[in-house]
Design a protein around this nucleic acid. Sequence first.
DNA 1: GGATGCAGGTGACCGCAGTCACCACCCCGA
DNA 2: TCGGGGTGGTGACTGCGGTCACCTGCATCC
Lengths: 211, 211
Amino acid sequence: MKKKPDKDYLLRKLRFLPLPLQEVLIHNGHLEQFPAGATLLREGQYVSAIPLVLEGRLKVYAEVEAKRLLLYYIRPEESCVMSFSAVLEDRPSSIVAEVEEDAVVLLLPSGQIHEWLRHYPMLNQLFFRQYQRRYTELLQNIEQVLFHRLPDRLLAYLNDRKRLTGQPKLNLTHRQIAEDLGSAREVITRTLKKLEAEGSVRLLEEGIEVV
Amino acid sequence: MKKKPDKDYLLRKLRFLPLPLQEVLIHNGHLEQFPAGATLLREGQYVSAIPLVLEGRLKVYAEVEAKRLLLYYIRPEESCVMSFSAVLEDRPSSIVAEVEEDAVVLLLPSGQIHEWLRHYPMLNQLFFRQYQRRYTELLQNIEQVLFHRLPDRLLAYLNDRKRLTGQPKLNLTHRQIAEDLGSAREVITRTLKKLEAEGSVRLLEEGIEVV
DNA sequence: GGATGCAGGTGACCGCAGTCACCACCCCGA
DNA sequence: TCGGGGTGGTGACTGCGGTCACCTGCATCC
């Protein structure tokens, strides 16, 4: 991970966009790095720039009365629809965005977004796609919460993590899992044990393994 | 409500859009009426046209294993983002759209949408706004489900209905409410009684009154 | 008339999961 | 070396709400 906002680097990372749009974003965007654990956006904050993730991974939460619920992850070539809509509607953010894996982010100044949207259909498409994806993710989430019991939800979550990190053994504390699922630590411990007894997971010292 | 696709009628109803876009939509759209109770879109169905509601009200559900959850309402000048994304992604619908109040709908053929999106920024904005609204609605919904007890959710639902219909006395069966909230009829009966005892609602013969 | 169906109403039961209290363990720093 | 912080683990309790069974009342239709 290089520090300098190298143009070649940016061109490489933005390959998925048409050339003229690449140029505009590189010219006007602001490249920044964030270490794991950093908070990009807090609840109630006004959004001055829309993040486009180039490397690493962000985690987006809804926060209600000190309780959290994991909404989605932002991976490279993706952006944050909540920031986007906060800009379009000129309203403060209602969510929290945290860095989960050291991230390189291109910050797009919110003032110019409207103009770009008019000129570059691809940018429209990008955000439509993002919205669509987030919406269906959220939908699946709510279906899980409403119609499925915790063991199912937990298993689905673990499978997601496995896909996301690419590692078979998940290094997560029970507390972390509980926070992501909006549950409690003891409950996760108990449910994990139950899943292990059923043979769906293995609880090793190196981490949790989904069978 | 007139039957003929009268151009004056359409122009009046589409006033909220810029003139050239109005013309295009009127030329290519297909005006249709649906009676209350009709189903516009079923789960798993492919979407051939995106509905733009001119009158009445649609109700959109997610359906999972015979259980339902109310997602949102579509009112005049609004559209259905789930149809929209089904078109963009060329995937079948995962939701159900029903007519709740006799509706007049302008059906926009999905094939031409892409082209229109390129030419009319206003159409982009329309759908972005829709996405944004639906997303935050869904978010509030999931927060309700996760972090609030049924009495709160029920009360929020009743207040929504009151705002939506404009009538102080709600004509809903307990079964309907239960379906919308993904709960059971007896539970709704019980909870309504509880709310009445607390003085938050009044259960009259003419309907439910939120205090 | 009886049959059927839908509305609301109610008591009993019970399972899931959230909460509390309290373990033991381990690592680290003072 | 002793504490303090973080882990995971467990038993007991509790309440919410989903389910079942069964009731009444009312409208409709043979």
